[in-house]
Design a protein around this nucleic acid. Structure first.
Lengths: 174, 174
DNA sequence: ACAGAGGTAAAACGCTCGTGGTACATTGGT
DNA sequence: ACCAATGTACCACGAGCGTTTTACCTCTGT
């Protein structure tokens, strides 16, 4: 059973992804959620509250999809994410850029996502090389971020190139 | 001598970079430019026209700064860009994400930037390896995009890691 | 000396925004 | 049978949006 709150969050996430945060009106969001504005405000408090909740939910979903332990699994997961949802650049970065700076709830959600992302890379490094390697983890992070950005206009080519790059970087350090 | 139009563009660019496009009001922009709204509209036509002009100007500046021919020069240029302007993620990607999709002037400016970026990578590949290599160019593009994104929260570490990654990828293909 | 270009300040346009209020419908548990 | 919870539709608020208008000022070249 899905609660109304969950329905609001899951149905507004793609709207934010497609149109951004500042430029979209609450009425378009309520329409997408199939819910009255009164209900939306009762569950989310404010538009900012909704944005924070959407980012939190996305982070949770992300953490499930990217619970991987090798470079190949990482880019398999990214490829299927891009295939099923498209790519419009990192939603957390975009949220921060649209005046999310200074909004505590948004900043917190973004910070949590970034820590998660870093942990994913560190654990892949551990599994692939049998130890910690801060530089390699940073490199994988950069390549992954680059793939999500570049995929928005280069498509799967960017993901494939990122996968090859990451593999080659791991080999170079073992 | 700098024209009023140039002054408007150069002084509003950092405001867009800091606060985004949709969320910032024209009055904040005129204030930053030190210009009346009448003058701004006479020179730029509309807020959208201003955004397109700002993106065009940024692309020009970018093309001057990144007129490089080696991987090291590329990341030297990026490092000093990040040092002097900070990093908040690719402004072109962000412009598109804030409902720039479907706005012809914005889409055009972004497309031109991306072609430029791709040409820069291809010419570096040419110089570094003595020939064309589509995969390597795509990899450098990904690494560069990743560095600009990741630098927004990892700082110069991301740029350094990207530089090392790019160098290693070039070596692996020569 | 004066025309014209290019600037200013201030107000107002119609519209949309985020948010809350009011009043009514549906439904499940006891 | 009915209460409480949870939803709806609809309207109103004050604020801010992008944009245009009106009226005035200040240079600069001839």
């Amino acid at each position: 059973m899905t609660t109304t709150r969950e329905r609001i969050i899951t149905s507004t996430e793609p709207v934010f992804d497609a149109h951004g945060f500042a430029g979209i009106g609450v009425d378009r969001l309520t329409e997408a959620a199939g819910v009255s504005s009164r209900t939306l405000y009762k569950h989310m408090g404010s538009k900012t509250g909704l944005i924070a909740a959407v980012l939190d939910a996305r982070r949770d979903r992300f953490s499930r999809v990217f619970a991987v332990s090798t470079v190949d699994e990482l880019f398999d997961a990214l490829a299927s994410w891009v295939r099923s949802e498209g790519a419009r650049g990192c939603l957390f970065l975009r949220a921060l850029g649209e005046d999310g700076h200074g909004v505590a709830e948004v900043e917190h959600a973004v910070a949590e996502y970034r820590e998660l992302l870093h942990r994913v890379m560190a654990s892949i490094v551990e599994r692939e090389t049998g130890g910690a390697d801060e530089l390699l983890a940073e490199q994988l992070l950069v390549v992954f971020e680059g793939a999500t950005s570049a995929a928005s206009y280069r498509g799967q080519r960017a993901v494939d190139a990122a996968r090859a790059a990451a593999r080659s970087l791991v080999v170079a350090r073992t």
